[in-house]
């Protein structure tokens, strides 16, 4: 049976979309959470939707690398050693190569990639991690293994997560920490609503028809993440799990 009873899990990007659904679902099956986001009222909204008690919310910009360690360590001291880390925070960008620049790459990589690596470093410290093992999941994207117009920045930031998770899986195996990536296709969230509005109409239509099972729901991603956070997946590490309604199999 799938459950996360007794597990302490830290979730970034919990104030919206996939991260919020994952938080709600993980709490429902027994986990105690540290949830992170920047938007006060939306994060509070997630906290109010959680089952169980003793969850902690952290209002935090995860690219504020100077203060990340002290804030996270303090929260872990309060809640207890961590069994799972789920990195859902991320930003999307559809900008053609000719309009990209170093500043835009830096912003994308800071939120999508470097924050995941920094949080992993902090959480995997002996004082912060359950010595019996833990599971880390980075929400990458099918765009981490495929290409599309206007996605040079986004694709590269998501692809970097995949290779980082493999290196980390090997390095952290002695600590019994498993590290995997989840690669969703298009799921209806705040992020994708905004993206679709900005895309030329034909491009938006094309994306929809390329998903044989239609767009995904956030609960589809939450189900997979809960499995990867649970002991049912104890022999899965260093891999990427595509969950895209058939988008990439054509």
């Amino acid at each position: 049976m799938l459950d996360l009873i007794g597990k302490k899990i830290l979730i970034s990007g919990a104030s919206s979309g996939i991260g919020r659904e994952c938080a709600i679902f993980c709490s429902k099956i027994g986990a105690t959470l540290i949830i992170i986001g920047r938007d006060k009222s939306r994060l509070q909204n997630t906290l109010d939707s959680l089952s169980g008690k003793n969850h902690i919310q952290l209002l935090l910009d995860i690219t504020d690398f100077e203060s990340l360690e002290s804030v996270i360590s303090k929260a872990i001291e309060n809640i207890g050693k961590i069994d799972g880390f789920l990195h859902c925070a991320g930003i999307e960008s559809t900008v053609p190569l000719r309009s990209m620049n170093a500043k835009k790459y830096r912003e994308l990589f800071s939120v999508n990639t470097i924050s995941a690596l920094e949080l992993s470093r902090i959480i995997s410290k002996k004082k912060n991690i359950n010595p019996n093992g833990a599971s880390f999941i980075f929400i990458s994207s099918v765009m981490g293994i495929l290409g599309a117009s206007g996605k040079v920045g986004y694709c590269s930031s998501k692809s970097a997560l995949i290779s980082a998770s493999k290196a980390m899986a090997v390095e952290l195996a002695p600590k019994k920490i498993r590290v995997n990536c989840v690669l969703p296709g298009m799921v209806e969230t705040e992020m994708t609503k905004k993206m679709i509005l900005e895309l030329p109409t034909e491009s938006a239509k094309e994306i929809k028809t390329k998903h044989p099972l239609g767009y995904g729901e956030t609960i589809d991603i939450a189900n997979l993440c809960a499995f990867l956070l649970s002991d049912l997946s104890k022999w899965i590490t260093g891999t990427e799990l595509v969950i895209d309604g058939g988008y990439s199999c054509q």
Binding site: T94, V95, P96, R98, S99, S149, G150, L197, E198, L199, P200, T201, E202, S203, A204
Partner: peptide, 23 residues
């Protein structure tokens, strides 16, 4: 073309901090 449209969205966002929609 569609890439030009995406570029205009990015260009206007950068110059005027306003997000145009494809509509």
């Amino acid at each position: 073309d569609s890439l030009a449209i995406m570029s205009i969205v990015a260009f206007i966002d950068e110059k005027f901090s306003s997000k145009l929609t494809s509509n």
